[in-house]
Design a protein around this nucleic acid. Structure first.
Length: 290
DNA sequence: CGATTCCCCTGATAGC
DNA sequence: TGCTATCAGGGGAATC
């Protein structure tokens, strides 16, 4: 489940691996993932011979700046992940040639492959086919809702505690849901919101209005700590996320609550619980999160 | 307008 | 063994 740390890891790896590469050809078996232009032949025609100049991230969106003033935007959603390497087709099925990933189940779900001018391929593997791909003009980017309705970047140096608190003013709802609201703060999803709240010792069901200055401070500090740790460890890999090189992230070993239902809290030994908050699962320690 | 529900999709898992 | 029902889950759209 790519959230900020996974997307950041992806972008850093892509910068190394596909910057200055040119798209030669595109293949897909899932045209519905491409939202713009809607006609795949148009998409193909427009992206062919475009050179990748720069890759960056905004929230969970990956932005490829291309020559010719075009932008390729990819949102990996739940199970999407980008891989760079070589594949070959065997019996109608793409098989990864990326070291260590030959038999990885994650590579069974390649639905979009960009062939590059160095013989390598940029592939989008996505079990659920929820990922979103758009090719737009650069000037359309600033009016794109996907980006301009996003809240601030949580790790921005300018995103001070004062600004953080400002984002919660007049907000209603449970802290877990508000933290995951991309319009409040960009990039935090189900995994890291659970981890942040455990770190801050705040119960996920707490209404944001009841949080005092000290508690908000704890969340602010925890948010930075956990997201930075996530990036340092190259994200998680218990879901099908992999880095573009096909490596697993190491956050799994560090994680304190997410998908640890029934296991012991690493702080107090209490049993970790899982509840539903707004159709999403939340994991927490009922003893040390107040 | 805000809050809730539905839907996209399909492998894994549970129940029979 | 094999069929069917349920679940997960980001985010946008439809609906309450």
């Amino acid at each position: 489940m790519p959230e900020l740390p996974e997307v950041e890891t992806t972008v850093r790896d892509l910068e190394r691996k596909v910057r200055n590469r040119t798209f030669i050809d595109i293949w897909t078996d899932s045209v519905k993932m491409i939202k713009s232009p809607l006609n795949f032949e148009d998409f193909k025609k427009e992206i062919k011979n475009e050179k990748i100049q720069k890759i960056w991230r905004r929230g969970k969106n990956i932005i490829f700046e291309l020559s010719g003033g075009k932008i390729l935007l990819i949102h990996q959603k739940l199970t999407g992940h980008l891989l760079v390497g070589r594949w070959k087709k065997e019996k109608g099925q793409w098989k990864s040639q990326i070291k260590g990933t030959l038999d990885e189940p994650v590579n069974r779900f390649l639905h979009l492959i960009f062939s590059l001018d160095n013989g390598e391929m940029l592939g989008l593997s996505d079990l659920r086919k929820f990922a979103k791909v758009m090719l737009i003009k650069k000037e359309e980017l600033e009016n794109l809702k996907d980006l301009n309705e996003l809240g601030p970047e949580p790790l921005d140096k300018d995103f001070t505690f004062e600004k953080f608190k400002e984002r919660f003013k007049n907000k209603k709802g449970k802290i877990k849901q508000v933290l995951m609201d991309q319009q409040v703060i960009a990039g935090i999803g189900n995994i890291y919101s659970d981890e942040i709240l455990w770190e801050a010792k705040i119960h996920p069901l707490r209404d944001v209005g009841t949080l005092n200055n000290e508690e908000l401070g704890k969340i602010y500090i925890a948010m930075q700590k956990i997201l930075k740790k996530g990036i340092e460890l190259k994200g998680e890999s218990f879901s099908d996320y992999r880095t573009p090189s096909g490596e697993k992230g190491n956050y799994d070993k560090f994680r304190k609550v997410y998908r640890r239902e029934g296991e012991k809290c690493r702080r107090c030994g209490e049993v970790i619980q899982r509840i539903k908050i707004g159709e999403r699962s939340a994991h927490f320690c009922p003893n040390c999160q107040k």
